[in-house]
Design a protein around this nucleic acid. Structure first.
Lengths: 158, 158
DNA sequence: TTTCGTTTGACCATTTTTGACTTTATGACC
DNA sequence: GGTCATAAAGTCAAAAATGGTCAAACGAAA
């Protein structure tokens, strides 16, 4: 974990984890200073790791009193997330987007680490060996997974 | 036995043997430097000696902070893993046989109920919509699943 | 001497890091 | 209300830091 971007990501997610509001507000320059890096490095981290796909929203303002506000989206309580996810998945799904969605489901504790590994395994680039439309297949498989994890009989409530 | 590839293989397996986590992480360039060889020599070793059939999985990342991660797959002493992979599953797998194998894995407590449900979902007859060879795809998916459940990095020491 | 596993190097791909330049907001001064 | 200095944040492309691929050269064993 030698790279800066990962450290900054961790730092921000820690902050988000500690706060009850579900969002944090900070300044780009200050953060850049903390990590002794170029301010644009912060933008890099935000655009690569705090995307909607991954479950985050970033708002900001320039000028005097400018700020960054990172909001953790979370999944809505009753498993309605399935609909949201289906939209996110669509009819075709690249490997990249697929990984992000899986990572998010893990962060939200919808899936265990092992389940995520299983799903990554069956949605890998190897699908291309079997079909000319691996992205369609990938989308279908992931939707199938969501359907399954939402089944009531599999979620003995606490 | 003095060749480089063998030495590198030994070195990596030693590392894996010493760790309890079931995986090691290192950098290609660093390793190449240790053995004073071309970086691509490392890839040669990985692709010839650390394959799934031999019980390993390799993940990697490029760019700044890039790395190689080698994961050990726990195979039982008799090599049952390979047996299951090649004989029990084979190149093609009917839905029926697939269900039986999954059920068996649940009984054996290799997979949880939820995991089984997930896998049944992704190996259903719907695969036929995406490929003219659903049985081949099904076989590949189930092998992928087995490989994953064998990953030592996912199985916290009992 | 043919063959096959090994070794190397030239070129490719991906991810991160940095810096020069741009845009927008605020507030003080006229 | 304009104008301008100052204080943010944004954009984008180049450079740096990795790992990947592939084919040719090498060399030991058959």
């Amino acid at each position: 974990m030698a790279n800066l971007a990962d450290k900054i990501e961790r730092y921000l997610k820690d902050m988000l984890g500690k706060t009850a509001e579900g969002f944090v507000v900070l300044q780009r320059g200050t953060l850049a200073h903390i990590f002794s890096c170029a301010p644009s490095q912060i933008n890099y981290v935000l655009t690569t790791r705090f995307t909607v796909e991954r479950g985050y929203l970033v708002e900001s303002r320039r000028g005097g009193g400018g700020y960054l506000r990172i909001v953790r989206l979370g999944l809505d309580a009753e498993g309605n997330f399935r609909h949201v996810m289906s939209d996110l998945i669509g009819d075709e799904l690249t490997l990249d987007r697929c990984s992000h969605i899986i990572a998010r489901l893990e962060e939200e504790e919808v899936l265990t680490k092992r389940e995520c590994a299983l799903i990554k395994g069956v949605t890998s680039e190897k699908l291309a060996v079997f079909t000319p439309h691996p992205r369609r297949l990938r989308a279908a498989l992931l939707k199938e997974v969501l359907t399954t994890v939402c089944r009531d009989d599999l979620n003995p409530d606490e």
